[in-house]
Write a protein that binds this DNA or RNA. Structure first.
Lengths: 241, 241
DNA sequence: ACGCATTTGTTCGTATGTATC
DNA sequence: CGATACATACGAACAAATGCG
């Protein structure tokens, strides 16, 4: 079903995570991989480019592609990842409590964030996230109901993204996140176990569909001592002329 | 000097930022761009892929490539960018005060972070960053002296990265950043105008050279109300099999 | 210092698949 | 259905960096 280069990308990740190559060592050359997978160089290069962009390898001209220490780089937190995927990865007991679920008309603030008029209803979802018995994240999300017509409590207890992608068959395209720190609000105190902290880390998120339309605005509010964001970045190519 | 696709990438950015295309509109098709720049489709596609990855456009199969609202997406903060580049971009009066500059033997903590032994000297640089008259960022950086032999006060007052790339001709490859929030330390109180805040946002950074060797470990400590981090992410391709 | 083999980087060409309109 | 536009895949050639003898 998938493109060859994507399936090779996943196969290589599997090998890397299995420890088939030691950290700092070279992976087979493009020529060898071509033969192993019986594909063209173009296809292998696309797979390797994905590995490079996602921080698995570092390519050096004339030398080869080297495995990076993904454990040390504390992967992956950059990018779009849902709370459910995250809790699966960290392997800790996590629980989601749906505090509010309602379809309503948008306030001025939400109209501005979602770029809609007052004739477009929205779904408002507020969920507290419990890890190791403490409520440390408060997620407030607003969905454009033109794209998500119906939401239920049971969907919200699982992964809304799962529902959007696999049931509604909408394709998430990209997202913008903004991280700031704010004084905590009454809602934070009401829904979170703040443990004395008077500030929260706020991650504002705008999620767009494949075709560029704005699906969701969300605020993820974290207790400061439990927040961590990891980013992997490559140096942007410079102009030499 | 540069590769064609990189120079076309920069030319297209220039056009986009000049407002040659309106937000939400299509840019010329790959076929047209091929003719305009007189290059192959492969070259154009590489340029467009870079634009897409850096959040300038959104490509939709069968439709075209659409301009994203880069102003709204609040560019660019993701990725590697030095304080000097940043202050140029935001266009505010910014000043750097070099508080500490010394070559010394590494502590145990720094040895672990930089993955060196106690025979490798390090450069320690502490700089306060003043914006609009207030010291709001404290940068503590440690460089492996095997790569950076000499540092001077005047270099530190400008951009150390400039010096590393343009004078030492070392190529920065990639970096890992980690964002956390911590209680402020004595140093924070000593060097920053904290304005009553008792927490700081800490960005831990590991900067690697082209060949994968670790050049720098740094802590960038920010007053919480003045901190903002923006991230642009694309949905990672899923397995469909 | 030099040439040669290896490896990745860039560019071109061509063909076919798939989504949109 | 046909035209357009982007996606995937293969092949080929040369450039540039590296390592070795």
């Amino acid at each position: 079903m998938n493109a060859k280069y994507i399936s090779i990308y996943h196969k290589l990740i599997e090998q890397i995570e299995k420890g088939a190559f030691t950290v700092g060592s070279k992976i087979p050359s493009e020529k060898l991989l071509m033969e192993q997978f019986d594909v063209s160089r173009d296809t292998i290069r696309k797979s390797l480019q994905m590995l490079e962009q996602n921080g698995y390898i570092n390519k050096v001209k004339g030398k080869g592609s080297f495995i990076l220490d993904t454990a040390k780089l504390n992967f992956p937190v950059t990018g779009l990842i849902s709370f459910k995927e995250l809790s699966n990865q960290i392997g800790r007991e996590a629980e989601t409590i749906v505090e509010i679920l309602e379809k309503k008309w948008p306030s001025k603030f939400i109209r501005e964030q979602l770029e809609i008029d007052d004739q477009t209803a929205i779904w408002k979802v507020v969920r507290a996230r419990k890890i190791d018995g403490k409520k440390i994240i408060l997620d407030k999300e607003y969905y454009n109901s033109s794209y998500v017509e119906k939401l239920s409590r049971s969907i919200c207890e699982g992964s809304i993204f799962d529902y959007i992608e696999n049931t509604l068959h909408l394709n998430i395209g990209f997202a913008k996140k903004e991280i700031v720190v704010q004084a905590c609000t009454e809602d934070d105190q009401k829904y979170l176990d703040l443990d004395g902290y008077d500030m929260v880390v706020v991650v504002n998120t705008f999620v767009y569909l494949d075709d560029g339309s704005l699906l969701q605005y969300g605020q993820s509010r974290h207790r400061p001592d439990k927040f961590k964001f990891v980013d992997f970045a490559r140096r942007i190519q410079q102009v030499n002329e």
